[in-house]
Structures are given as structure tokens and as C-alpha cells.
């Protein structure tokens, strides 16, 4: 690991100033589980690490009057998983945080850090896209809020500007009659990164699907909203055949990555299987 300075600003404005001052030589550190590994492997060689842990504004889980859940960027995965507030408002997110990576990483890694690192092979981004979450970014010049779809740009790349800090993740209230389900596939039980994951948020009246938001992630560079499959399901009476056809559309809509963990063909197939299992369960067709 190359030498660096460790700076601990106490406000977002100061952290932003430091980022502007040091430019590409600086990196933000939150929990550090991903960053320290990247430093140790010399994939990154910053001269300054700017720690966010003294900035109180980045902590806390709250709900506003509109029912929007705000998760401070520094909230660790274990805190998201244990939070009564998250469990009450978005149990799917709490459930996901309780299985992410492994116990050590859940105790160290943060929700904000996970999103900023933008590694596709992780749990939260796809689920947050299905939940139509937004991201609040702040710099010394002000604040802006982006839909998560606009924040996640590419492989390990986000829309964050050089002097910006991710302050919070905002998740709008879910409709009372909607149901969210997150499913993931690990190649082996010991693997900590999903090969594919799939989130569905469905709204039904009896056998009729009123609305469906579905997202596949982890095998594509960024999460993919499966709009064709959503259109197929919306307004229809749910049958096993319809669900299978929707899963088939997920498979054909995506362009998976191909790497040592899985070829594109394999990932495409698994994405279809995971979609089918998730949707069957989501629509009450079976306990997949």
C-alpha cells in the first residue's frame, strides 16, 4: 500500500473543499472494505484519504412526512438490516442488508460506500432501482438529488462529481398493496457476491397484475429495469405461462458481462432462471 495522508473533515463542505483541492489524488473513505482492498492491490494509489466518519450529517435513518425513507450514507449494512424503521417501511431492503457479503463486511461497509464504488456484483443497487430510490449528493456549492438510474452510469462509474459527497439514499414510500421480493443467485453458498439478482415489486388485485416494477442486476454493468417484461405483465391475469414469458423477456433484454465468474451466455440463462423463480413466488404461483 502506497503512503497517504488521512484527513478527517467534520463537515460536508470541508470534505468537498478537500476533494476540490486535491483532485484526482484524493479518495473518500467510509467503511473502507472495498477501498482498502483496492489500495492494497494498488489498483488505486491516492495521496490523500478523506475520511467521512466524523461527519454526523451522513448518519441516521429517518422517515419524512411523505413517507420517504432517508438512509444516511454512512449507515452500515448491519445497521440497515437491524433498523426497525427500514424493516417497517421497506423490509425487502432490510432483508437484503442482512445477507449482503458476510458478517464482517456488513459491520464495516456502508450503504453509501457500496453505491459509490459501483461494483455491479453486489446487492443494493438493483433493489434500490426497483424501489425508485434517489441519491442526494452535496458539495461546497450545494445539493442535488438524482434518480439512482442516473447515478449509476457504468462499470465502477457513477455520476458523482469530483467535489461531491453522497449524503443520503432516499426511498419513496411503497404503495400499501404492493409487494417487493428480492432474489439472488450465488454460484456457491460460500460466495459473497451475487452472480445475478432480481427484484420485483408487484401490485395485484386478485389474479390481475395492476403494476410491476422489475429489475435484474449484478450480471449487467448497471442494474436493468426490465420494461418489456413489465409491459407484458401489467394489466394481465397472471398465469404460469405469462410469468415464464416475462422471465424469457428478461433473458433476451439484457447484455450480460462476461468474465472469470461467468460467461455472458451462462449469466443470461441464470438471469432468466432467477427472474422466473422470483416472479412465480411474487405472484403466489409457488414457493420458489
Amino acid at each position: 500500500m502506497v503512503d497517504f495522508d488521512f484527513l478527517e473533515p467534520q463537515t460536508v463542505a470541508h470534505a468537498s473543499q478537500l476533494l476540490a483541492q486535491y483532485g484526482e489524488d484524493a479518495r473518500l473513505i467510509a467503511g473502507g472494505t472495498a477501498l482498502i482492498l483496492a489500495l492494497r492491490q494498488r489498483m488505486l494509489q491516492p495521496r490523500q484519504l478523506i475520511s467521512l466518519t466524523k461527519i454526523e450529517k451522513l448518519r441516521g435513518i429517518t422517515v419524512d412526512n411523505a413517507g420517504t425513507l432517508r438512509i444516511g450514507a454512512l449507515t452500515r449494512h448491519s445497521e440497515v438490516g437491524a433498523s426497525e424503521t427500514v424493516r417497517a417501511h421497506h423490509p425487502v431492503l432490510a432483508g437484503l442488508a442482512r445477507v449482503l457479503a458476510n458478517p464482517q463486511v456488513r459491520n464495516q461497509g456502508t450503504f453509501g460506500g457500496n453505491l459509490c464504488y459501483a461494483d455491479p456484483a453486489t446487492d443494493p443497487p438493483g433493489c434500490l432501482l426497483a424501489l425508485e430510490a434517489s441519491i442526494t449528493l452535496e458539495s461546497q456549492h450545494g445539493e442535488r438529488t438524482l434518480p439512482i438510474a442516473d447515478f449509476l452510469v457504468d462499470y465502477f462509474t457513477t455520476a458523482i462529481e469530483q467535489d461531491e459527497i453522497l449524503v443520503a439514499i432516499n426511498v419513496p414510500a411503497s404503495k400499501a398493496n404492493s409487494n417487493a421480493l428480492y432474489t439472488r443467485h450465488l454460484r456457491t453458498a460460500a460466495e459473497h457476491r451475487p452472480l445475478v439478482n432480481f427484484t420485483s415489486i408487484v401490485e395485484c388485485e386478485g389474479p390481475l397484475c395492476i403494476d410491476a416494477r422489475i429489475v435484474t442486476a449484478a450480471s449487467t454493468i448497471t442494474p436493468v429495469r426490465c420494461t418489456q417484461a413489465e409491459s407484458l405483465l401489467r394489466g394481465k391475469t397472471i398465469t404460469p405461462e405469462l410469468v415464464d414469458a416475462a422471465a424469457q423477456l428478461v433473458e433476451t433484454q439484457i447484455s450480460p458481462i462476461s468474465d472469470s465468474r461467468g460467461t455472458d451466455d451462462y449469466r443470461r440463462h441464470i438471469a432468466g432462471v432467477v427472474a422466473q423463480r422470483n416472479l412465480r413466488k411474487a405472484f403466489g404461483l409457488e414457493n420458489a
Binding site: 488521512f6 473502507g32 482498502i36 448491519s78 458478517p103 464482517q104 463486511v105 464495516q108
Partner: peptide, 10 residues
């Protein structure tokens, strides 16, 4: 009191 990996901590 919480389990962490000390090789991923400064």
C-alpha cells in the same frame, strides 16, 4: 463488540 476484518481496517 462487532466482528470486523482487521486486514480491511486502518
Amino acid at each position: 463488540g462487532e466482528l470486523v476484518k482487521s486486514c480491511l481496517s486502518l
